[in-house]
Design a protein around this nucleic acid. Structure first.
Lengths: 130, 130
DNA sequence: GATACTACTATCCAAAAGGATACTGGTCCC
DNA sequence: GGGACCAGTATCCTTTTGGATAGTAGTATC
């Protein structure tokens, strides 16, 4: 027997879910946020970006950068130097993600401490590395 | 020629990336955040949760709930009623995600407006639905 | 002219994620 | 005792994701 209040809440809840799903959608995958963070220091070249991200392969990096360009989070500029250099830079719009990234960073730090201090035998499913 | 400043920044950047990756790791997939949001209204039963989330299949819902339990975001309580009822409830720890969820919700709302108002032909890769 | 570096692309493959469909075991309702 | 509802499981399959490995075109270096 759903009350009016329930009705209202469930609609508000659905709206929240849709909004969060939209966000998840454009930020999907393992690499988009790390790439945006890596770019936040300013323009950077493909190879340097790859180095900064440690274990990303060029294929994946290339694919992710294209999607980020499509969504207007990064720009790609080719300089006619010899060997041509290509620089990727964050857009103004990418800064709108700063709050999300900040909160995720804070939460991640806190979570890692919590897991490390806990008596769990297994840290599987709790931290990104081994 | 990396300056000392560059060195520092790249380490800070790496730390941010690790923290964000930890967060992404436990919240991975399409459903975990939506489920947590759906639970935020209080205890709810399996079938009602499934209804609230619209198009999730019981297999996926069951799997996600198990992972959320492992990470201490939800509790599962069985009541010895007849037909047994099972209630899923958010834990205190799940509230620590409120800031992240709030920011993602705000960003998602803003992003959808932006895309809808833009003259892009294609909204592919920009919004979660068709 | 051999080697090296940059910015990728191409091919192939494995694993994970997600979903469709069907089913089970229990209980209630009539 | 036939149908319905609940809380899932079981099986199968497709798609997506991510990665390993190799290669290319162009230039610069020694």
């Amino acid at each position: 027997m759903p009350s009016l209040k329930m009705e209202y809440n469930s609609e508000a809840c659905t709206r929240s879910i849709i909004a969060v799903r939209d966000t998840l959608y454009v930020l999907s995958g393992k690499w988009k946020l790390p790439i945006i963070i890596a770019l936040s220091g300013g323009p950077i070249r493909f190879k340097d970006l790859q180095r900064l991200l440690q274990d990303i392969t060029p294929k994946i990096l290339s694919k992710e950068l294209k999607e980020l360009e499509l969504n207007e989070f990064v720009t790609r500029t080719v300089y006619a130097t010899s060997p041509v250099t290509v620089e990727y830079a964050p857009t103004k719009y990418s800064e709108s993600l700063n709050n999300i990234i900040g909160e995720m960073r804070t939460w991640g730090l806190q979570h890692r401490k919590r897991i490390m201090n806990s008596s769990r035998r297994s840290k599987k499913r709790a931290l990104a590395d081994a």
